[in-house]
Structure formats: structure tokens, C-alpha cells
């Protein structure tokens, strides 16, 4: 049976993750640890955190977890093996597989983070449906923007500082939109009033994904 290259590459990503369980477990533990630090920093009084702080803190935790989770996406393979993949598959398929895989990883991460975070620091969310939609859009955005950037950084010797300075300004407008939307969701505002933000988020997502697909073929040639 012949698999579609994207499916085969996706399967490879999952297998790789499964064999190196420490990476995924490490990220999950990272989330738990950060949430717990935040909880204790507010002297363990979960409900005393104001809503704007709750919101901002959640997204900042997610931002850093995303940075760690995705920046490894081009490192975990040895140079020789990368070359081997590139001789087998087209760059579009490789980046698509990476994008899909990172999106799924980010979705898992953000839902997991929400679960831990809401358990420990309290759950003020008024409109859970809208909040989950925000999570999905936010996760896709993180995955879309960070995947290409981690590809760029992997060419520059996988410098962690470089990854941070390249991705923070790029992700900032995105983060502001997401925070605004999730604030609306927490306050349980009428959904029609969040329509603008949803539209902007979707178009920002579309831009980053399209750019990744367009630019990656030039990146992997080196």
C-alpha cells in the first residue's frame, strides 16, 4: 500500500515523538511547573488573581511553552537524516507535515495547559465555547509562525536567543488579538462583538501558513 507522502511524514513525526517520550513529557512538565510557579507567586490564593491577570498569565505561559515545544521541531533530527528526508520528499510536503504536526501538538498543549491552569488558579471563563475557539486559533497561530522561524533558526545554529527575538515581535500582534478575544470570552460578552477579532485572527493565520508554504522551499535548499 502506498501512503501519501504527507501522511508518511506525519507518521514519522508521531513515531519520533513516541520514541523520544522525554521531549513531550518534558514540555508537559514545563507547563505544570510554570503554572505552579505562577500559582505560588500569588501566594496560593487562586481566586485572588484578577481576570486581566489570569488572562495575560495564561497566554504568556502558553507563549513560552509553544516556543520550547516548536523550536525543537527542526533540531531533533540529525543532519544526515534531514538530508535523507529531503532527497525523498518535496519541501512542500515536509513543511505541511511539520505544520500539521505542530498544530496538533499546540492544540494538545493549550488544552492541557488550560486544564492545569483552571484547576489551580480558578476558572473565571464565562463563554467556554468562544474561549475554546480562541485556543484553537491561538494554537494554530503559534504553530504557523514558529514552525518557519524555527526552520530559519535551525540554519543559524539553533540559537535560543535568536528564536526568542525573531518570534516575539512577530507573534505580538497575534498575541494581543488572542488576549482580547479570550478576554471577551471570559467576560461572556455577546459573540457578535468578537467577530472582528476572529476575522483578523483567521486572516493572520492564513498569512502565516501561506508564507510558510511559500518560503520553506527556499529555506531547505541550503
Amino acid at each position: 500500500m502506498r501512503n501519501h507522502p504527507i501522511l508518511a511524514l506525519l507518521k514519522k513525526e508521531f513515531l519520533l515523538e513516541w520514541r523520544q517520550k522525554y521531549a513531550l513529557n518534558g514540555i508537559l512538565l514545563y507547563v505544570v511547573g510554570t503554572v505552579f510557579i505562577c500559582y505560588l507567586s500569588f501566594s496560593g490564593r487562586g481566586n485572588s488573581v484578577g481576570i486581566p491577570t489570569w488572562n495575560a498569565l495564561y497566554w504568556i505561559i502558553l507563549l513560552f511553552s509553544a516556543l520550547h515545544a516548536i523550536s525543537k521541531s527542526f533540531i531533533q533530527e540529525r543532519a544526515g537524516r534531514t538530508l535523507y528526508y529531503y532527497s525523498l520528499a518535496s519541501p512542500i510536503h515536509i513543511i505541511l507535515a511539520k505544520l500539521i504536526y505542530n498544530s496538533l501538538l499546540m492544540l494538545l498543549l493549550s488544552f492541557f495547559a488550560l486544564l492545569v491552569y483552571a484547576t489551580v488558579l480558578g476558572n473565571p471563563i464565562g463563554d467556554l465555547g468562544l474561549f475554546l475557539l480562541t485556543l484553537v486559533l491561538g494554537s494554530l497561530g503559534f504553530a504557523g509562525a514558529f514552525t518557519l522561524l524555527s526552520g530559519i533558526v535551525s540554519k543559524a545554529g539553533n540559537n535560543a536567543t535568536l528564536m526568542a527575538i525573531l518570534s516575539f515581535p512577530v507573534i505580538l500582534p497575534f498575541l494581543l488579538m488572542v488576549m482580547k478575544l479570550s478576554k471577551n470570552a471570559i467576560d461572556g460578552l455577546d459573540r457578535a462583538s468578537s467577530f472582528d477579532e476572529i476575522l483578523v485572527l483567521i486572516s493572520l493565520n492564513a498569512i502565516t501558513f501561506a508564507l510558510s508554504l511559500l518560503l520553506f522551499p527556499f529555506l531547505w535548499r541550503s
Binding site: I152, V170, S203, L211, F218
Partner: peptide, 20 residues
């Protein structure tokens, strides 16, 4: 490599700059 990768990032940066 410097030229190619910075060209890629430049295109990415400009496309993000316009919505910003």
C-alpha cells in the same frame, strides 16, 4: 546562507509588518 535566510525573513517580516 546569510543572504538567502535573511531574504526569507525579510519577506516574512514585511508581510507581518503590514497588518501590524
Amino acid at each position: 546562507q546569510k543572504a538567502r535566510i535573511s531574504a526569507i525573513y525579510n519577506i516574512f517580516a514585511f508581510s507581518v509588518l503590514i497588518p501590524i
